[in-house]
Write a protein that binds this DNA or RNA. Structure first.
Lengths: 179, 179
DNA sequence: GTTCGCATGTAAAGTGTTACATGATTAC
DNA sequence: GTAATCATGTAACACTTTACATGCGAAC
């Protein structure tokens, strides 16, 4: 039985505190979302599988008439988390439709290409801004804080790169019109 | 009928020249692979769908007894490519198991965390190296060349970032041992 | 009293990878 | 002759998203 990386995200989040499936989803959206997303359609079935495998334990903890299941890590779950963390990472995938469009930019009219570059700059500036906001609102310390800092600085760097490139393309287009 | 981004990659690659499915796969592996991968299992069925939709045209072009189908873009296919290129990009997804492990680094023994950082540095240095090799072997000009340059510089930046961070973590661990 | 947030789940559809199967041609 | 490359394709599996369905509690 091999566990998916998403299963390990759940184990990792339960390592710091007990949570419901709903809270796990919220934590993912606040933190790992930018490099590892997960939906309810994954989280709830995965919690069941992990419970069957003895890695997590759910206990009912209703609020009034509203049923609620809080999950916690078992000793086996903590061991599995440690094992996975020590093992080398495998998955690294990027799917960037913006880069794809830029790649085919030679098929574009110059103004459209400049617009595609501007969209790339904007997109990464926005991600950096959102991450920055999380940091200002008392973001995490330790390794989560380090990864957050990385996300901010990388997106700022990418945004600046395309900003420079956009300037250059704009200048070249202007020179061409002048000639 | 909406076309997937992968369908548009095929249209884009057929825009510069006619190709077989095999050649499309090879071109993807040489170029868009780092930000948009595609497998035979997608390319061949997608070529059929695109042919049914009148976006591409296949003509048999055997080499001896070996059957071979060369595809070319139709006028409708070129229009669709233009339309898609002008439209804002939607998909941007990153799945980075290494960042995930670093995120949970507080659960790791310090030497293991330092190793995870080193793995991240190495991974991006290797990608940068491979892309650099493509550039040296007479890489593409124009927009494909620009995207390649971006890939090289971004991976070098990421590698340098984790290099710095690894140094710092190593120093801190040493100071702690000394104290 | 209605909207928003909490809470759990499933079904269907879409996307994509991997492995397998087949066979010809070219280079060593 | 044999290994690598060219060439096409499918089947099984894994993974994920989206949409739907349901209902309580709190805030306004």
């Amino acid at each position: 039985m091999t566990l998916s990386p998403t299963a390990h995200v759940i184990l990792g989040l339960l390592s710091s505190r007990d949570r419901t499936g709903y809270e796990i989803k919220a934590a993912v959206d606040r933190s790992t979302r930018f490099f590892w997303a997960a939906s309810y359609g994954q989280i709830y079935p995965e919690l069941k599988r992990l419970a069957d495998a003895g890695m997590v334990e759910g206990r009912p903890d209703p609020r009034g008439a509203r049923r609620r299941t809080v999950y916690s890590l078992t000793a086996a779950g903590r061991r599995e988390l440690q094992r996975w963390l020590a093992e080398p990472a495998e998955t690294f995938e990027l799917r960037d439709e913006g880069l794809l469009k830029l790649f085919f930019g030679d098929d574009l009219e110059p103004p459209a290409a400049v617009a595609a570059v501007a969209a790339k700059r904007e997109h990464h500036a926005q991600i950096a801004g959102r991450l920055h906001a999380i940091e200002r609102e008392g973001g995490p310390g330790g390794f989560p804080g380090l990864v957050l800092r990385f996300g901010i600085e990388m997106n700022e760097w990418i945004s600046a790169w395309w900003d420079r490139e956009g300037e250059r393309l704009g200048r070249e287009a202007a020179e061409e019109r002048a000639a």
